[in-house]
């Protein structure tokens, strides 16, 4: 992620500050989406395309769709457990 923006941060007025914040949020969102896509490709390729043929077969495509759904489910389970744990440790 490129954060070396040429904007001088010290003299940012309200509007350009908002703009910088939006830009940063957007860059982080893109970085997150990219990371997720990479993980999904890696994981679902491993699970579903065991011996790559000349095209993706029907069952491979079905497997990929389920794999994506289950990975997102897993993400949510992890997220819930992780946040609960962080809260518990903060007490």
């Amino acid at each position: 992620m490129d954060l070396s923006s040429p904007h001088p941060m010290n003299k940012a007025d309200g509007a350009s500050k908002e703009h910088m914040m939006d830009q940063l949020r957007q860059q982080i969102a893109v970085a997150n989406a990219t990371e997720l896509l990479q993980k999904l490709s890696d994981k679902c390729f491993k699970k579903c395309v065991t011996s790559p043929g000349t095209s993706l077969g029907n069952s491979e495509q079905k497997c990929i769709a389920m794999c994506v759904d289950r990975y997102l489910d897993s993400w949510n389970v992890v997220s819930k457990s992780y946040v609960q744990r962080l809260q518990k440790e903060r007490q």
Partner: peptide, 14 residues
């Protein structure tokens, strides 16, 4: 964490 636990826990995606 999702990466690590997916590898540990997930068999074939159903």
């Amino acid at each position: 964490l999702t990466d690590v636990c997916w590898e540990k826990c997930m068999d074939k995606p159903r």
